[in-house]
Structure formats: structure tokens, C-alpha cells
Design a protein around this nucleic acid. Structure first.
Lengths: 122, 122
DNA sequence: CTGGATCCTGGTCGATACTG
DNA sequence: CAGTATCGACCAGGATCCAG
């Protein structure tokens, strides 16, 4: 942090853009929400809470979140293995602004859809 | 709105997912931010504020935003034509949760990047 | 000046099959 | 149970040229 960085908002390294890029991937926000609601969950439990997700995509999504430090992965050394996922503090802190965006979406997306229908693009 | 819709959060029509899908497209959030900062702007003014955007992508992005009802388009009937864009009330209201997400990104993305580097995933 | 039309590339995502 | 490997479809997005 070198003081004011408003100019950075439009640099290729813009943190907002990179964050939205990730949240924009299909399953990321749903996984965060599921872990926020369910606490610590196993792989299959998580999968059940995310209708439509494939094993590969859930695995990839979780790997990204773990690498980002938003989700913690805990392996029980049993047979068969049990793997548990939960939000880290960082992940939980993201839930705050993210839930604000969710509220906005739930309140206003219907109007957006309506507008799009009239424009004939949606 | 038909009362509580928490279950909808994971339906294919989930409003949050669809909103993030749009905000996740490369230039959308930058355009919203630029219009929020600059007020009403012409196409080329907007383009200057968004380094790296191509004519096509700016055009496409603005069309989407206009169709969504987040941005208003005003054409001055001159030669050559001047086209002005500004946020609608709906678009301005989106700026509220969006700026909260920006703050989070600016405060925490560095830590995410650091975490990723250690994980060796980029 | 403000776009539209076209072509092309890379990455996201899904289906399927296989493994410890 | 919890992944990994591979293949292919699809589309966002960039380059370029053209038009009102």
C-alpha cells in the first residue's frame, strides 16, 4: 500500500476486477454461500447443496478457494478419507459485502430482467 | 417477490449468480465505476477512462448495461452524433453494494495473492 | 464519432471414465 | 468418498475492417 491508489482501479492489476473475475466464475459464490450457511461440510455434502455442479468443477472451485485462502481444507485420515471444507476468517469476511450484493440482486434483478425483455435482448 | 426465496439462491435462475455473472464480465464493473465517478459521459470519454477496452467491447458492455436498465443512453442529433451515457437510479443503487465489494477487494486482495503464491498456483 | 460485422483464439465449463 | 485425466463444446473477448 503506497497511499492513495485510485488510479490502480483501472490498471490490469485492479483488485476489484480480479475479485469479480473470480466471483463471476460459475460456482464460486455458490460455494462460499453454502459454506457460510452450512459451516464445515464434506465434499459430497457440499455437492448436494450445489445442484448441477460436477465433481470436476466443485473440485476445481474448491482448489481455487483454498489456494486463495478463503476456504480451509481438513482431511480425516480414515478409509475412505473424509475431507472437510470451511470458510476461513478471510472467507467469512468476504461474506459481508457479498451478502449485501445478494440482497441487491434479490431485490432488483427482477426489474433488470423485465427491462431486458422489453429491449428484446434477454 | 413472493416472500422468502432463500431456496432460489441455488436455482438456475438465482439472481445473485446472474448478477455476478454480469459483473464478472471484463469491463462491466469498470464502466459502472467510471460512470459513477464521471457522471454523464460520451462514448469516447468513457473509453479514455477505461484503458485497454476496445471499441467493440465497450459498445457491447454498454448495450448490455442499457438493456439491463442500469445505464441510460442519450443521443444528440448532430453531425457527427454525440452519444451520452449515465447511470440510471437502478445503476446508481448498484454502486452501493458494489463499492463495498471494492473496498473489501482493495483491503484483502493482496493477502489472497500472497496466499496463492505460496500455494504455487499463480 | 459511434458504432456494426466478421474472424479467430483462449479459457471456462461439462461429460465421461478412471484411481487410491 | 474424494478426487484426477482427457476430450470437446461453447462463448467471452480481442483484432480488424466497414458504415452512417
Amino acid at each position: 500500500m503506497t497511499g492513495s491508489r485510485r488510479g490502480d482501479l483501472f490498471s490490469p492489476a485492479c483488485p476489484t476486477r480480479r475479485l469479480l473475475d473470480r466471483l463471476g466464475t460459475k460456482w464460486t459464490s455458490m460455494a462460499v454461500k453454502s459454506l457460510s450457511d452450512g459451516g464445515e461440510l464434506r465434499f459430497t455434502e457440499l455437492r448436494r447443496r450445489m445442484p448441477g455442479v460436477s465433481q470436476k468443477m466443485l473440485s476445481t472451485t474448491l482448489q481455487t478457494l483454498v489456494a486463495d485462502g478463503l476456504v480451509a481444507r481438513r482431511v480425516e485420515d480414515t478409509v475412505p478419507p473424509r475431507v472437510h471444507y470451511r470458510l476461513t476468517e478471510l472467507g467469512a469476511s468476504l461474506e459481508v459485502p457479498l451478502s449485501a450484493l445478494r440482497e441487491w440482486a434479490e431485490q432488483h434483478m427482477a426489474r433488470i430482467d423485465d427491462h431486458r425483455r422489453r429491449a428484446g435482448l434477454g
